[in-house]
Design a protein around this nucleic acid. Structure first.
Lengths: 168, 168
DNA sequence: CGGGGAATATTGCCGTGCGTATAGTTGCTA
DNA sequence: TAGCAACTATACGCACGGCAATATTCCCCG
């Protein structure tokens, strides 16, 4: 494997990865400054965007790629903090709704401005549009050179479902 | 706090956040398919990009925003898997180098194509350039409306608590 | 030359957080 | 009414990482 070539890809991936990791950690730091974890923020936004500001536990789990038990616990924590509450489902007494409270909405209101600011900084600062498109061109070139027909059938180290891309 | 306005911001943040979260989880899934965790991938790229394919434990910790003990343990795992090795530092017998092995480089080679592909898909698919700039404009507008003087001062690089809100 | 303090890596201890498997409850249908 | 399905909550265990303590080595200053 050409060393030089590998270097090219590595620096490209490395730089971009740094940028992503940096953004993630800044997100986390900002959430933390407001007493939230990443998943808790996600739960909050999901609920806030849902009709009636509520969601069944199962649906919440499905929409956050968390297991149902994980959702139970997150909701436990956030209920303890007063950010969300549980509400019995009138139609089906097996289900229960997680519903965002006024405190939860306020918390979201506190976080959003800084969050948006961070996003904008990232895109306009760290990732100049021109830089970005140039980078993407380079990416494509490199990739085409490696995988003329993509296919990606690489057969890894006998480890697993290859490109098992999941996600909802 | 205007409900309508809040909704605007929420959908904006929510959509973007989904995009980021989706990318993250796809990254993780891909790494996992090759038997790596996220930090392990980061360590691998960091070492591969370093002169001599090696880095002192402390430096590795500094560059990965992991504590030194965390690095020790990650290196333990990866050494056990044969992806990297330890090498005594000739100049300073307190230090030791983590050095990437041939197997580690090969593993990286297996991962990179799919990784690059994913990145390109994300930028060109999920985040159309036109969409993106429009979105950023909207962002800016919204933000300005909320924080006329924003200031934003700061913290492009540290993790200052910013609006350190209490609440446990 | 010697001693104290700084730097470095490792390890024990512990908290966190999640997933799997299990249990308990309620709804639905024959 | 019985039995199966759907839903949530809990028990258990695991992986991960930070903090603080420890051992070793280096370096500076008297």
């Amino acid at each position: 494997m050409g060393e030089h070539f590998q270097d090219e890809r590595l620096t490209a991936v490395g730089l971009l990865y740094e940028a992503f990791a940096g953004l993630n950690s800044r997100f986390a730091a900002q959430f933390c400054a407001h007493g939230l974890s990443t998943v808790e923020f996600e739960v909050l936004t999901r609920l806030a965007r849902s009709p009636g500001h509520q969601l069944r536990m199962t649906d919440l789990a499905a929409q956050t790629s968390l297991s149902t038990s994980g959702v139970t616990r997150v909701v436990d924590r956030m209920e303890r903090d007063g950010l969300i509450g549980r509400r019995a489902c009138p139609a089906d007494r097996r289900s229960s709704y997680a519903v965002i409270t006024q405190a939860g909405l306020s918390r979201l209101d506190e976080i959003l401005p800084g969050h948006l600011e961070l996003i904008e900084q990232w895109f306009t600062g760290q990732l100049e549009p021109a830089q970005l498109s140039a980078f993407l061109d380079a990416l494509r070139t490199i990739r085409d050179a490696v995988h003329p027909c993509a296919t990606a059938g690489s057969t890894a180290s006998g480890h697993a479902p290859e490109h098992a891309v999941v996600e909802a």
